[in-house]
């Protein structure tokens, strides 16, 4: 059955078409978000971009704009983790796995178009996931994701902690790359205003491969040994 025929079937009669429409709408929402920003993207924009009628969009997303945005974001998060998973699956020893996790996770965040556009134009949407309880959620998800990859080398408790540890390093370097040398005079004055107001810019390679290897060898591997020792100690 060709795609053209699927397109002509009423969505309600075809789970295939419905699924296809949902992903088309979700992809269109991402395109619109990258172009106009999240706040300015309307259901009409999304329908036009997906080349579907407004009615069809609402049939596959009865929750409207909010549901579309949530779906688009979560499919992007899935895609991010899937791409990272493909990189990690190619590694066959712990050091290589940790190095790959640090550098690939950071590179993929830094080269994400919709994320860059959100950070530049609507940082409030993103930064709620970079601190306090929002970041605890991200840490939880990152730890969960990495557990199976770390399982050949680490017990689950250590794997979860190491996964979160890597996520902290990735986030820290994506937010403030090392070589920017963010140093300060020590005064209590706020930093000067930047032109245009968008000071959230992503560096293309926040953790270079060599820097990732150095972090892993110097800090992460010795730290893992201590974590493993202390979990062996009888309490």
């Amino acid at each position: 059955m060709g795609a053209a025929l699927v397109d002509r079937l009423p969505a309600a009669f075809s789970p295939v078409a419905e699924c296809d429409h949902r992903s088309r709408v979700s992809a269109a929402a991402l395109t619109c978000m990258a172009r106009f920003g999240l706040g300015k993207t309307t259901v009409d924009d999304i329908a036009r971009e997906a080349r579907l009628s407004r009615a069809t969009v609402y049939r596959v997303f009865p929750g409207g704009r909010e549901e579309i945005v949530a779906t688009a974001v979560s499919s992007e998060v899935e895609r991010y983790f899937a791409a990272l998973g493909a990189v990690l699956a190619a590694e066959s020893e712990l050091e290589g796995l940790l190095v790959a996790a640090l550098s690939a996770a950071a590179d993929q965040l830094a080269s994400h178009g919709a994320l860059a556009s959100l950070l530049a134009n609507e940082p409030e949407v993103v930064v709620s996931y970079l601190a306090f309880s929002g970041f605890d959620m991200v840490l939880g998800a990152a730890g969960e994701f990495l557990v199976p990859y770390l399982a050949p080398y680490l017990a689950e408790r250590e794997a979860r902690r190491v996964g979160q540890w890597l996520a902290r390093l990735v986030t820290s370097y994506v937010a403030c790359p090392h070589f920017e040398e963010p140093r300060l005079s020590g005064s209590l004055l706020p930093p000067p205003r930047a032109a245009g107001g968008s000071r959230f810019a992503l560096h293309p390679e926040p953790i270079g491969r060599e820097e990732a290897r150095r972090l892993v060898r110097q800090f992460v591997l010795p730290g893992i040994a201590v974590l493993q020792d202390s979990s062996k100690e009888p309490n």
Binding site: F135, D136, L139, R161, R168, Q218, G223, V226, S230
Partner: peptide, 27 residues
Amino acid sequence: ISSPGDWDLADPAQVAELVRSEFLAGL
């Protein structure tokens, strides 16, 4: 300081384990 993740940062024993491992082991 911002986000404790899985660690209980009110528990001195856990904080000591955290500092000895993630912070200082390689340092």
